[in-house]
Design a binder for these strands. Structure first.
Lengths: 229, 229
DNA sequence: TTGTATGCGTTATCAC
DNA sequence: GTGATAACGCATACAA
């Protein structure tokens, strides 16, 4: 794999000049630029992102730690995040915590070792030591879908859906339709989203004067049955 | 974020010594090791993987380019790959090609720029220029689930299921049950797996003397309906 | 056993 | 406009 010095040699210029055309710095004569570009082309040269990151102190990489890859919601989320990131010339590295705090920390640690520029996390219930420490230490971080309310975490932005509003709207709709016995199957209770929904459900029933049966509150997983590739 | 020199200073040793205990090199006195470890601990030092990669020329990272993240098969695959890799202290970076050759190449390029140690690819139909070039150039690569038969690619290992055998077994089973009109819904025709299955289906029908209706060969997607997070 | 010095591939600062 | 060269954080060959 050719390095910048190979390109320089072939183009008959210094590595500095090659670097300049690569980062399209203004001060480089048109014809030298051409020569460099030609050398790049026929050497099939590609800048070493590792070296570049070491030097510039940025990796153009985002970490995304999700709680469950097998949940289609998160797989769609991952896809959207990657789409948006790619648009800005960022890569995203996904870590699957599988609802396990220790695994979540493993990924946070690995990603930080790799010096990612920022971290998106849909935290497992209660968070995990390393991830909380990173957040408090000011690591660029955003919570997605789920969140954690704890000291020192108020500066971590949260991107999420309005579960409470959604549940209320659903109950309102069913109520307007004349239904009086409504039930809910929410996600795992060990998630902020799951709890929020059940809680909102109780509130909504109360608000609309519907009777609440405790056994009308169910809990499910968010995973689909398996498929074939 | 502390660097190795900070640890060295704090432990009163040289960076070389710190590096040695970090990579548990044998020749380092027990008590100095302790001192270094202590310094590491209370500085919360973590080796910079970027710098380490540049120096050692290995990233302990695998690239996994799949054709469709929204297909649960690939999401399970990704999960398994990551599990196995983690066991060996490797990370895996996933790229979603979304069945688009250009996107596939984008990911191959990005991953190679990042100097990943190896590439797992479930190629889109017909492959893509950069990915084929990489394979021919000897980039450590293995095909998963799907594959490509082309010149210079015979040294790329393929990990896949025995779709042909599976279809034959299915038809045999149905036939033994006395069924005479069997149909198939295979995956996208633009995949090796999809074509293999339809092909095997035809063969099996012939073998078992069943009549083949062309309109009994359907084609579907492998995506589940959406779910909530 | 430990320290000094070099180099990995870049970018950026300084000369010219 | 272009070229030496230092520095990024680390691992290692060589000296001591």
């Amino acid at each position: 794999m050719p390095a910048i010095k190979d390109v320089a040699r072939r183009a008959g210029v210094s590595v500095a000049t090659v670097s300049r055309v690569l980062n399209d710095h203004p001060s480089v004569r048109a014809d030298t630029r051409e020569r460099v570009l030609a050398a790049v082309a026929d050497l099939g040269y590609r800048p070493n992102a590792v070296a570049r990151s070491l030097r510039t102190d940025q990796t153009r990489t985002l970490g995304l730690v999700i709680s469950d890859v097998l949940n289609p919601f998160f797989t769609e989320l991952a896809r959207s995040v990657e789409d948006a990131a790619r648009e800005l010339d960022y890569s995203v590295v996904i870590g699957n915590a599988d609802e396990r705090p220790d695994l979540q920390d493993h990924h946070v640690r690995t990603l930080m070792d790799r010096r990612i520029d920022g971290l998106l996390v849909s935290p497992t219930d209660g968070g995990s030591p390393m991830m909380l420490a990173a957040a408090r230490a000011g690591t660029p971080m955003v919570f997605v879908d789920r969140w954690i309310e704890d000291e020192g975490l108020d500066r971590v932005p949260v991107i999420r859906t309005d579960g409470r509003g959604a549940i209320r709207a659903l109950v309102a709709h069913l109520c307007a339709l004349g239904h009086r016995r409504v039930a809910i199957i929410a996600g795992p209770a060990a998630t902020t989203t799951g709890r929020e929904r059940v809680d909102a459900f109780r509130s909504a029933l109360r608000e609309f004067g519907l009777e609440l049966h405790e056994d009308h509150i169910g809990q499910g997983t968010s995973r689909p049955p398996a498929a074939a590739g």
